[in-house]
Amino acid sequence: HHHHHGSGALAALHAEGPLAGLPVTRSDARVLIFNEWEERKKSDPWLRLDMSDKAIFRRYPHLR
């Protein structure tokens, strides 16, 4: 159930192989992290948004 927010940013994801479903670039990863943060913020208003490279690598090590 993907609803768009204002920016309408869509992340490019790997379609197949071992990385299927994972973001292709760091900016794609940022979109995913932001979208998930927006969702989680509803139940956790104090949740901090962390889109640093460090956060991205921790989450998606293949982007190193």
Rank of each mutant, 00 (worst) to 15 (best):
H1C: 15
H1G: 12
H1R: 08
H2F: 13
H3W: 11
H3S: 10
H4R: 10
H4D: 08
H4Y: 09
H4S: 10
H5E: 11
H5A: 11
H5S: 11
H5F: 14
G6F: 14
S7Y: 13
S7G: 13
S7H: 15
G8Y: 08
G8P: 12
A9T: 15
A9H: 14
A9R: 13
L10Q: 14
A11Y: 06
A11N: 04
A11M: 05
A11Q: 04
L13K: 05
L13C: 08
L13M: 07
L13H: 03
L13I: 13
H14S: 02
H14G: 02
A15R: 10
A15K: 15
A15F: 08
A15D: 12
A15T: 14
E16M: 08
E16Y: 11
G17F: 03
G17L: 03
P18H: 07
P18F: 05
P18W: 04
P18G: 05
P18Y: 05
L19R: 03
L19I: 03
A20F: 11
A20P: 02
G21P: 02
G21L: 04
L22E: 05
P23K: 00
P23H: 00
V24D: 01
V24M: 14
V24G: 01
T25S: 11
R26W: 11
R26E: 07
R26N: 08
R26K: 15
R26V: 15
S27L: 15
S27P: 05
S27H: 15
S27Q: 15
D28G: 05
D28E: 03
D28I: 02
A29N: 00
A29Q: 00
A29G: 03
A29P: 00
R30T: 03
V31L: 14
V31P: 01
L32M: 07
L32N: 02
I33L: 12
I33F: 05
F34C: 06
F34L: 08
N35I: 15
E36R: 04
E36D: 08
W37A: 01
W37V: 02
W37E: 01
E38H: 15
E38S: 13
E39I: 12
E39T: 10
E39F: 10
E39M: 12
R40K: 13
K41Q: 09
K41W: 07
K41H: 11
K41M: 08
K42M: 08
K42N: 08
K42D: 09
S43A: 12
S43I: 13
S43H: 12
D44C: 07
D44K: 09
P45F: 06
P45W: 05
P45V: 06
W46L: 13
W46I: 07
W46Y: 15
L47A: 15
L47N: 06
R48W: 07
R48S: 08
L49C: 06
L49T: 03
L49V: 06
L49H: 02
L49Y: 06
L49M: 05
D50T: 03
D50Y: 04
D50K: 04
D50C: 06
D50V: 04
M51G: 02
S52Y: 01
S52W: 01
S52N: 03
D53K: 07
D53I: 11
K54L: 12
A55G: 05
I56G: 00
I56Q: 00
I56P: 00
F57W: 06
F57P: 00
F57Q: 06
F57S: 07
F57G: 06
R58V: 11
R58F: 12
R58D: 12
R59A: 08
R59G: 01
R59N: 05
R59V: 08
Y60H: 01
Y60D: 00
P61E: 04
P61M: 02
P61A: 04
H62C: 01
H62K: 00
H62E: 01
L63A: 00
R64T: 08
R64K: 12
R64N: 09
